[in-house]
Each structure stands twice: as structure tokens, then as C-alpha cells.
Design a protein around this nucleic acid. Structure first.
Lengths: 223, 223
DNA sequence: TCAACCAGATTGTCTGACATTCTTTCAATC
DNA sequence: GATTGAAAGAATGTCAGACAATCTGGTTGA
């Protein structure tokens, strides 16, 4: 029996592929905020039919990664600073809780995993590759969220972070932000490693607040 | 020019109507958990075409109100108690925060609105109409969430509460649950009316915890 | 009894079509 | 010259029909 059987339990459909491709394209900033997406163009570029594309667009709409106005079609929403602030606030709520829970329940194996992801971010921080920085940082959080013992917390957090990826890329390229981010993340890690729930919460809160401040600076500084 | 010119009327499309109808059907428990939805049947019942229906289903899938497994189609997810617990925990996080913020920022007009919705729940609690109870209680929360000053908090909360509507209907029909629920909600209201942020948080937390306990009882008692 | 297999049911996807609704262009009017 | 209005073009909303791939349940054969 072919060994790739376990990889094919759930067949990937055109719709799933399309959602993933478009999500990646949006998160990496390929489309300008406010720009409209033309169905026929996307169909041609992706090599799929309109019904399949429209299903994918509905999924992305529900994730709030695109907006669909009747008779005007899909577009990339321009994230206002008000909404971004609201997202950062909820993110703080969730992330602080997750870090606290994680501190008292993470397994040694996962802790090791977390340490490795911190190292990966450290390496990225030394380089000037802001894309790598954002990705490794996202890995770090996702390990924490995955080990907080609450899958819903993880799910909601992922959805929110996706919507502010736009800001995260920009703020990471601020002078010195990667370094101070590294320091904050190290503090979170140390607290979790020590099993100190309160310290983990405090460090996590600090981190989100500073990330928000950095996002605001990067937004104000250029427009 | 008026500052906030948002007069754009958005026409209701077949897809939106369909999503609303199906969501209502799901939330009111019309479909058994675990049961499958047959596209052709739904098309006939709703009088729409398959592409339109499939778009609507993708929206509902993203809201986690249905599951779609490739080559098996859509079905109503059976909510495990583990996931329900996780949802209640996050709901607590969000609702407590919202109640706290609401206490220090709600306007007199909205406070009056809140009072009216509490009265509506009181009336529903006296009757034995558990559907009316769930609906009026939902109104009460939604006013609080709408006045917490954070639209994201509101949005996330709405999504989570929708997924546990199944439990809320059952637990409301428990002997005495509506009455104690009323007492808890009244306490939340009084705290908010007094502008006492800490009391609002405490009352809100109590309320969610008791709602969770009631849901567990109603789940264990019949299977 | 159990496995293989077959027929019906269902989904995934595509093509093509058409009415409705923007958007843009260009001319006419004031 | 600016504004209005109309017409052409583009894009979306929606449908119908088709077909292959896949699942499901029951029947057959060993």
C-alpha cells in the first residue's frame, strides 16, 4: 500500500486551495487595501471557474479578510486605526489568558518546541528579513495558544491576528522593534518555562501593548 | 457635507437571505446535531440554485455553524462538552470585559434600552416560553456588547454565542433557571447603572459560570 | 460470514447564459 | 466651464444543465 495514504485522508478541493492561496496573497500584502478584486481576473489567474472562486470568496468574507458589497463585488478592506485598536485590545485579552494558562500546563516537549521557535525568531531578528520575523513570531504565539488548553481561544486569536498582519509586517521593520520584540518574547518564554502564571500574563500584556504602540508609530509615520 | 454619510442602502441578495434563513433554522434547533444537509433538498426547499446555496453554506461553514467535509457535504456539527466548555470560558473572558467597560461608558439612552430589555426578559421568564427567554436574554447581552466601545469584542462574542445556542435553549427550560438567570442579569444591570466597573465584572462572571453549570446539567440529565 | 462489487445518490466542478447593477464616457444643457 | 443626463461597457448576481469523482447501502459470490 502506498505510504502517502495518511497524507490523503482529506482530499484537497479546488475551493480549499483557492482560499489558502488567496489568504496567503492577502496576508502577504499582495493587494492594496481598498483595492477591488475582479472575479474574472482572479478566475483566469487561478485557473478556476467562477462558482469555485465565489465559494472561496465567501469563506474569506466570513474571515473578514475581504469585503463583499452587493453589486460591487469583493475588495480588500482598509483597516482603520480604530478597528485595529479594537483588535489589539481583544488580542491582549486572549493572549494574556493563553500565556497564563500555558505557563501552568505546557508539556516539556512543547516547551522545548517553544524554545526552538524563540531561537528561530532570534535568528530572524538578526537578519533584516521582516517577513521571516513576522512568520517566526507567529509560530511562537501559535505554540503558546496551542498549549493553553482551550482550542477556541486559539481559533479566535488566529482569526484576529490574521486581520492585523498588515500592521505587523510594517511595525517589524521599524528600527529596533525586532530587538525589543525579542526581549519581550524572551521574557514571556522565561515566565512560562518557570511555570509562573502571573509573570507570563504580565509579560504577555506588555508585549501586546508594545506591539500596538509600534503599529501605531509605523502607521502614523508614513501616509 | 455630513461627516458620516453612510446612506448606502445595500440590496439583499439571495445569498444573504439564504444565510440568514439557514442560520435561524440552525440556531432554533431545526436540524439535529450530526445530521447531514443535502444540497438538492435545500435548493428545492429554499427555491434557489445550487451555486447560490453553496455560497451560503461556505459562509455558514466559516461561522462554524456547519461543517463541510470534502465529498461528504455539509452537516450540523455535534458540539462536544469539551468544546462547549472552551466556548463558555472565552465567552466569560469577553463578557466580563464588556460588562466592565460598559459600566463606565454607557449612555443614559442606552442604559434605558438595557433596562427595557431586562424587563422584556423578566416577562419572558414569567411565561414558560423558553424561546422568548433565549431571545430576550440575547438582546440584553447584545446591548451590553454594543456599548463596550469595542466592535471586535462584540463581533467575536456574537460568533461564539451562536455556537452554543443549542445549550442555551435547553438550560433555560431547566426548573428555576430562568428565575435565577433573571436575578443574575438584574445584578449586572444594577452594577452597570451604578457605573461600578468591578461589580459589573463580578456579576457578569457569576452569570456566565452559572449559565455554564446549567448547560452542563441540562446536557448530563438527558442523553 | 465476509469480502467484493455494483447501482443509486451526492458532491465537486465546469461551461454558458442572461438580467441587473455599477462605472465611465461623452454629449447636451444651463 | 461646470453640471447634468444618457448610453455603452464592464462586472456581478443568479440560474440551468452537465459530468466525473466519490460515497453509500445492498446484493452477490466465495
Amino acid at each position: 500500500m502506498p505510504p502517502d495514504l495518511n497524507l490523503r485522508i482529506s482530499p484537497r478541493t479546488v475551493q480549499q486551495e483557492t482560499v489558502d492561496k488567496l489568504r496567503l496573497a492577502i496576508l502577504s500584502g499582495l493587494f492594496q487595501p481598498g483595492s477591488r478584486l475582479i472575479e474574472s481576473q482572479l478566475c483566469a489567474q487561478l485557473g478556476i471557474s467562477r462558482p469555485s472562486l465565489r465559494e472561496a470568496l465567501r469563506s474569506l468574507e466570513a474571515e473578514r479578510l475581504i469585503e463583499i458589497v452587493p453589486n460591487r463585488g469583493p475588495s480588500i478592506p482598509a483597516l482603520s486605526w480604530e478597528v485595529a485598536t479594537a483588535i489589539y485590545e481583544v488580542r491582549e485579552l486572549l493572549e494574556v489568558e493563553a500565556a497564563g494558562r500555558c505557563a501552568s500546563r505546557i508539556s516539556p516537549a512543547q516547551l522545548d518546541e517553544l524554545k526552538r521557535s524563540l531561537s528561530a525568531f532570534e535568528e530572524a531578528a538578526l537578519s533584516k528579513d521582516s517577513i521571516a520575523q513576522v512568520m517566526t513570531a507567529a509560530d511562537f504565539y501559535s505554540i503558546i495558544l496551542a498549549n493553553c488548553g482551550n482550542p477556541i481561544l486559539e481559533e479566535v486569536h488566529r482569526g484576529l491576528v490574521a486581520r492585523i498582519s498588515f500592521f505587523r509586517g510594517r511595525s517589524m521593520s521599524l528600527e529596533g522593534r525586532a530587538q525589543s520584540s525579542l526581549a519581550e518574547m524572551r521574557e514571556i518564554f522565561e515566565s512560562i518555562a518557570a511555570g509562573d502564571e502571573n509573570a507570563a500574563r504580565k509579560a504577555s500584556k506588555q508585549h501586546v501593548l508594545k506591539a500596538k504602540a509600534a503599529a501605531k508609530i509605523s502607521m502614523d509615520s508614513d501616509i
